[in-house]
Simulated scan of single mutants.
Amino acid sequence: MLAMSNTQTAAGTTPEARIEALAALCKASADPLRLQILRVLRKDSFGVSELCTLFDIRQPALSHHLKVLASAGLVATRREGNSIFYRRSELGQQAGLDAVQQQIFEVLDDTALTPELSQRLLLVQQQREDNSRHFFQHNAHKFRQQQDLIASYEQYAATVAQVLDDAPLPQTGTALEVGPGDGAFLAELSPRFRHVVALDNAATMLARARATAAAAGLTNIEFIHGDTAHPALAKLQVDCVVINMVLHHTPRPWQILRDVAACLAPGGVLLLTDLCRHDQAWARENCGDLWLGFDPEELAGWAHDAGLMDIASIYLAQRNGFQIQVRLFGHRGLHP
């Protein structure tokens, strides 16, 4: 084996390159506004216009700061149609400097947002949620047609039901479905569990789910109008949570995973179906999508933060180019 040159570091970069990277990291983190940007990107990604609103700054000035952060490897971008969203980079973007980057993030995460910034952040998130809710309130009658544009229920329902049958469930007392849509999957949950809770924040969609359940003679279903922060969930201990094709419509998908994980009984599972990341921007306007799918690692990371582990994953390719991921998560340490 050849000996390592003394002009290289153990990380495989030259000392000069490492010093330059460290200088860029220090420069990027030496500005209060850039640190505030990194703070709000802790668990979210934002478009440029949203960041301009949050910090009351014009786009050219903001773009300069984002460029500095990106050059230092502190933020990463993703394009969704004509929009670019920014998020904090994962650790290890700069060779040998991940410890420094981690310390910066840890200090920021322990620092509270200013009251003004907290209020602006709440307004941006509320606007996202309102846009999604209004879409479904006004398009409930076209739910199936819009769903079929990307992935019809029939294309994934049988696989989801099979994963549910194969799940290591010690109990089958209560199931919770978040965002039941028109109620089709309730027919799968009703015979498998003694009690089923259907939760939706759009009243018109919940009414459609109720009508579907009534037509099918499903009598063990409780309907709740609200989101995963509803007080009723704090009293629930459920054996299974099902979230089918919902997260890409929600402003804070990671928070939903945290909320439902909190009401999972020991040994319970989360069955999650959603789109893999894609670049079909028309889905925003035509289907009410807030996110153009998710990387599998992204969902796994949010689940891990919520105290869950990956049990099983199935990926279904669609003829129209989309791909669906069916994921099963459970409490860490309680599943083999």
Rank of each mutant, 00 (worst) to 15 (best):
H249W: 00
A234S: 14
L292M: 14
T219V: 13
N286C: 05
R284G: 03
I256Y: 01
G288Y: 00
W291Y: 13
L271Y: 02
R208L: 15
L206M: 09
L275W: 00
T212P: 01
F223C: 12
L271E: 03
D259M: 08
L290F: 05
A211S: 14
R277K: 13
Q280I: 09
I256T: 06
H230Q: 10
C240A: 15
R284H: 12
L233D: 04
P231W: 03
N220F: 08
R252E: 14
D274I: 01
A215D: 14
R258E: 12
A234R: 14
T204P: 05
D239L: 07
H248E: 06
C240H: 02
D274Q: 07
A216W: 01
L218V: 05
L257Q: 08
P266K: 03
D289L: 14
L257H: 01
V242P: 06
I243K: 02
A262W: 03
P251E: 00
R252N: 13
V238Y: 02
T212Y: 12
D289P: 07
A261P: 11
E285H: 08
N286T: 10
G268S: 07
G226S: 09
L290T: 01
R277P: 10
A283V: 05
A209W: 02
N220K: 13
F223D: 10
H248F: 06
A281S: 15
R284F: 01
G267V: 04
F223N: 10
G288R: 02
G217K: 08
R208C: 12
C287P: 01
A261D: 03
D227S: 15
N286V: 05
K235R: 15
D227K: 09
A281L: 05
W291G: 07
A207T: 12
D227N: 15
P253A: 04
L247I: 03
M245S: 02
L270N: 08
I243Q: 05
I221S: 10
A229N: 14
L290V: 02
N244S: 13
N220E: 10
D274T: 09
D279F: 06
C287E: 01
N220G: 09
K235E: 15
K235G: 12
R284Y: 00
T228M: 10
P251Y: 00
R277H: 13
A213V: 04
A261R: 07
V269Y: 02
A216C: 11
T219I: 11
N244V: 05
P251M: 00
H225Q: 12
C263Y: 03
L270C: 14
L206G: 08
L264S: 09
D227M: 08
A234Y: 06
G217W: 01
V241R: 06
R284P: 03
W282T: 02
H248K: 04
V269Q: 07
H278V: 00
